[in-house]
Simulated assay, not measured.
Amino acid sequence: MNFLAHAWLSQAGNDDFLYGNLIADGVKGADLSAWPDDIARGIKHHRHVDAHVDAHSQVRTARQRAPSGQRRYAGIALDLLWDHFLARQEVGSRRHQELTARCYQLLESRSAPMRLARMVPLMVDQDWLTAYADFDFTCRAIAGLGQRLSGPNHLARLTTWLDDDYFGLEKDFNIMWPDLVSCLGTISAFDQP
């Protein structure tokens, strides 16, 4: 899951909890004592969701369909693609507009962790949470992320597979997403103080 999906899955929480979910990929390590309690719970929630998604049978099946030389990177590409499918379903809805406005307000009013500091202003200015609805934008985001990794850009190479297997991956998302939403209560149990 990427920013949009994590926002959707945590929007019922308070602003600190939502913020923790949004910045979690920029926070390293298990020691979250430097963070306020609700932000730390948001970071933990994000990590539990990621673990659940990575272990989901539909996601494992999708990764196995990736080209063998890029399977190691397929999970990263799929995280962004899941945001694409979610955005495509929700863009234009009042819920999406309210959620993205809330996310951007939080991200603009607080300092992002160093690992996200350069990216967050771009996300807000370019409205990534809506732009993910465009497949080409999502592929450019995947390729751009791949530029930040060392070595050849394996993520950019995966965009051809994402295009070729688009309808199969959409089917995977449409099975995985409701499963994730329905089990969220179980995942959220880990987030309680």
Rank of each mutant, 00 (worst) to 15 (best):
V120C: 08
Q147I: 13
F137S: 03
A51E: 08
S150V: 15
G75R: 06
Q126S: 11
V49P: 07
L149E: 00
Q58T: 10
I76K: 08
F137Q: 07
I39C: 04
A117S: 15
L80W: 03
R102M: 01
L86K: 00
F135H: 04
G92S: 06
C139I: 03
A55Q: 13
A101T: 15
D54Q: 07
A55S: 12
A133F: 01
L162Y: 07
Q64S: 10
A101M: 13
W177H: 08
P152N: 13
P178T: 05
L158D: 08
K171G: 15
W82F: 07
Q64L: 10
L106H: 01
K44L: 09
E170T: 13
L145G: 13
Q105N: 14
Q105D: 15
A66Q: 12
A131R: 00
M114N: 08
A141K: 01
A117M: 10
L158H: 08
H84E: 00
H52V: 02
L107E: 05
A112I: 03
G69F: 02
L116K: 02
R94A: 15
P121W: 13
A131D: 03
H45L: 09
H46E: 00
V53I: 11
T159Y: 02
K171W: 11
C103Y: 03
A143H: 01
R102D: 08
S93V: 06
R65M: 11
R63H: 12
D165F: 14
A143Q: 06
D136T: 04
W161G: 15
Q126L: 12
R88L: 05
H52L: 02
R148G: 02
L129Y: 00
W161C: 14
R94V: 14
H45A: 11
S109D: 05
T138W: 00
K171Q: 14
P67F: 12
V49D: 05
H46Q: 03
G144T: 00
K171I: 10
H154E: 09
A117I: 08
Q147D: 04
C103W: 02
T61E: 11
R65Q: 08
N174K: 07
W128N: 00
M119H: 09
C139Y: 01
N174D: 10
C139P: 08
E108T: 12
A74C: 10
D50P: 08
R148L: 03
D134Q: 04
G42R: 01
S93R: 09
D136N: 05
D134P: 03
W161F: 11
L155P: 03
F173S: 00
D54I: 02
F167T: 13
A77L: 06
W82Q: 06
L169D: 02
A74F: 06
V49S: 05
Q97P: 10
P121Y: 07
V53G: 00
L99C: 13
R94S: 10
Y104R: 04
R88V: 08
E90R: 13
T159C: 12
R157D: 15
T130Q: 04
R72G: 10
F135Y: 09
R41P: 06
H96T: 02
L80N: 06
V181I: 07
R102Y: 09
C139N: 01
L107P: 07
Q97I: 09
T160K: 11
D83A: 02
F85W: 11
T160I: 12
G42P: 09
T138G: 01
H56A: 08
